[in-house]
Nucleic acid binder design. Structure first.
Lengths: 250, 250
DNA sequence: GAACCCGGCTTGTTCAGACAAGTTCCGTCC
DNA sequence: GGACGGAACTTGTCTGAACAAGCCGGGTTC
């Protein structure tokens, strides 16, 4: 339990806010107060509050005390790249069926996104995801050739491929790009997701990379309308000074 | 131009990355290098690189040099709050038509979102937004009663209401919550946006607040499929994005 | 009563130095 | 050749100090 000092402070403050000790709209103690209370320097306290600010929990204006903006916890990045992780956290019964798993040459889009050399192959996987037994999402993923062997040795009913890759091979997703839009269901989508052709789907395409910027996968996920809503919070002072914490890659 | 030192450094580095001086995948100079080059302290340099990291331009791992992750500038979600700001930045010809502007009692959803006392009124505005003359988005906004007078005195063809509020009354949007999903076009949507009924729309509902957490507006924006794609980048440390299930009433 | 100003408080920015923890790379040993 | 070990380097965390910039309340003035 040797977490950094600023993480401890942040965690304590977070708990106080979530627990209602500092109600929404109220002021946080000043930095010097907190520094004294934790016998830490002001700089360390600032790291802690910067972290909370980046989570959207608190806001700040120069000269005025920090203010509690909201009381809910926001989910972090890992859950964005992992449908399974998110769904389990929300208490859903989740299952998935692999419909296709083939090696084939990369399409032009995949080559570009995954920055593959011309002629390289990918492992193409189509999975149907169900929430509480209902079809909720259709996932088409192209894995870069260098991870393909690791993916292929996973069992067919593997719930979270990214989690398994991290555990078994130390391949950890570090960041990603996401493109979100709405598209009409194609005939394949419609049949598999049990919706009418042309009905709205929420599409999320994303690229996942390692900490060194090496692309892992390029995915096209299509959600049944109403099954999922993306939620974003943003603050004007988009957390500039956030010196950050993070446990990654092996 | 007495911008902060760390902002100057960040801007210079950003330009170098965007200009290709540091290609994607290459290493940035070490912090001490940069500190020496700018005759600044290491702490200041760290603020600069933290900013770039939060923009997704660079990544870092303890012990290894920082790596350039991408070369395009990503828009921050701050611009999510302003359609006008985004569209102008992208070079679109933008126009808008106000279709409705009425005072009426708040709906239950609006009361909850805007945390209004029971029975309070809102200013309800419906606007059609066009990109290069094509209908692109239908915007339904409920302004809290305390900003309603300021909004009403704006001209009908005002391009960016939030910008005007900031300039004229010092009412500045500081943070917001966004809910993104896909919905079928209703008959009103279909007629105004020139699409068929039931065709996919990308819906973005959002709440905008001041720095003190006071709600300003609650909006329901519906984009024609294909007109707009939301783009998010995130790194492992802190992501503003999360995913929510099903129907969040309201 | 209303407008104004000022002093105290609080956050924003910067500095210089120190140690911890992780990465990289090279030389050595088997 | 390959495994091991260690030195040099780099980022992560923390301290204590100082000044700038902005906010707030209270007192003064009109």
């Amino acid at each position: 339990m040797a977490a950094s000092r600023y993480l401890q402070i942040a965690e304590a403050l977070r708990r106080s806010i979530l627990g209602g000790e500092y109600p929404v709209g109220s002021q946080l103690p000043s930095e010097s107060d907190l520094a004294a209370r934790w016998s830490a320097s002001r700089g360390t306290v600032r790291q802690a509050v910067a972290l909370l600010a980046s989570e959207g929990l608190i806001g700040s204006r120069q000269g005025a005390r920090r203010i509690v903006l909201r009381r809910e916890r926001r989910h972090s990045f890992a859950e964005l790249n992992s449908f399974a992780q998110w769904a389990q956290g929300e208490g859903y019964e989740i299952s998935s069926r692999i419909l296709t798993r083939t090696r084939r040459p990369a399409t032009p889009t995949e080559s570009t996104r995954l920055t593959l050399p011309p002629g390289a192959g990918v492992l193409y996987v189509v999975r149907l995801r169900l929430l509480d037994g209902e079809p909720a999402m259709l996932e088409r993923t192209a894995y870069a050739d260098w991870v393909a062997p690791s993916v292929e040795e996973l069992p067919d009913d593997c719930v979270s491929i990214m989690n398994s890759l991290a555990d078994a091979h130390g391949i950890v997703a570090h960041y990603g790009d996401h493109l979100i839009d709405a598209v009409p269901a194609g005939s394949v989508d419609a049949r598999l997701l049990h919706v009418r052709r042309g009905s709205p789907l929420l599409r999320q395409r994303h690229l996942t990379c390692t900490a060194t910027g090496r692309p892992i996968e390029w995915t096209d996920d299509r959600y049944v309308a109403g099954a999922v809503t993306f939620s974003v919070s943003n603050s004007a002072d988009a957390s500039p000074l956030s010196r950050r914490a993070g446990r990654l890659d092996g």
